[in-house]
Amino acid sequence: MVEEESSSMMPKLITFLSSVLQRVAESNDNLVDDDSAIETQKNSAFHGLTRPSISLHTYLERIFKYVNCSNSCFIVAYVYLDRFAQRQPLLPINSFNVHRLLITSVLVAAKFMDDLCYNNGFYARVGGISTREINFLEVDFLFGLGFHLNVTPNTFHTYCSCLHKEMLLLKPPLSNSLLTSSETSLNKASHLSFEEDEASHHQNQHQVAA
């Protein structure tokens, strides 16, 4: 019963997550004026020459439909994307890289979270790229994260709350106070939500190791 209810909620999660990513990507499209930063973006494996014709919502629905990863993987992928944006300020999430970042983040999340998952070749077909490309993207993404893959329960629930705020944003009527607070947390340049407490993260790592 719980699994059925969770599955029925997933399309809503897809809508909210795609809305967050779309807004962040559009806000970052014309953000960087520094020539060196632009060159860094163009040299990134995630940067496409053109904006993909498929919408972010449709792309995310396609991933959800075919990869069969657990529901929590999408939240963890959201966490990873925010960590990547924070650690790579010269590679802000925009319309030229968000699709590749998304398929890669879901792949890494599925490998970290699930006992079983499809191989890179399958994810490449779902994402519309080659197996060789997704192999490179996975490695670049992991190094971009600093291999910081663990997600604490507190962090997981905080990002769930961010998506819940997005749900309220998309559901009229909107109160001015809600709109202001949500825009502050979700529309930071290059970031999806907030900076995690790294000290808390390292403390949790020591507890796990002990």
Rank of each mutant, 00 (worst) to 15 (best):
A210F: 14
P52E: 05
A210R: 09
D35P: 00
G48V: 07
E133V: 01
T152S: 03
Q41R: 05
S193K: 11
D33C: 01
E166I: 06
I93M: 09
S95T: 11
P173D: 12
S36I: 04
L163V: 10
T104Q: 03
S7V: 07
I103R: 02
V32T: 03
Q86F: 01
G48D: 05
L186R: 02
A37T: 15
V151N: 02
Q207Y: 08
V67P: 15
E183G: 11
T50A: 11
N97Q: 05
V98T: 13
R23T: 12
L107I: 13
E183P: 01
S95Y: 02
H148T: 09
K171R: 01
N94P: 01
A110L: 03
P173L: 05
H202Y: 12
Q41S: 07
E26M: 02
P89W: 08
V151R: 05
P11D: 10
F122R: 05
V106Q: 01
N187E: 07
N97T: 09
F147S: 04
Y59K: 10
S190A: 00
T158F: 04
S27Q: 10
L102R: 15
K65V: 15
A109Y: 04
F194C: 14
L163Y: 15
S53C: 10
F156D: 02
K42F: 00
S105D: 15
Y66H: 11
F96T: 08
C117V: 15
T180E: 05
C160Y: 14
C160K: 10
S72Q: 12
I103N: 09
V24Y: 05
L107Y: 02
H47M: 04
D197Y: 04
A37S: 09
N71M: 08
A124G: 08
T15M: 02
E3M: 14
I75K: 02
D35E: 09
S95R: 14
N30D: 01
A85K: 10
S190P: 13
E61R: 02
M167Q: 13
K65E: 13
I38T: 00
P89A: 04
C160E: 06
L81T: 09
R51T: 15
T58C: 09
E5V: 07
F122W: 04
F64N: 15
F74Q: 08
T158L: 06
T180R: 07
S19R: 04
E26S: 08
L81P: 13
S70Q: 12
H157G: 06
L178T: 14
E198N: 07
Y66V: 13
H47W: 06
N150H: 15
L170R: 04
H206T: 15
N43P: 01
Y123E: 09
S161T: 05
G128M: 03
L178Q: 13
Q88M: 03
Y159T: 04
S55E: 09
P89T: 10
H201A: 07
E166D: 10
A124Q: 06
H57V: 11
F84G: 07
V20K: 00
K171G: 01
H191D: 06
N28V: 07
T131R: 06
H57L: 11
M9G: 04
S7L: 03
N68P: 14
R23H: 15
S6K: 14
Q86D: 06
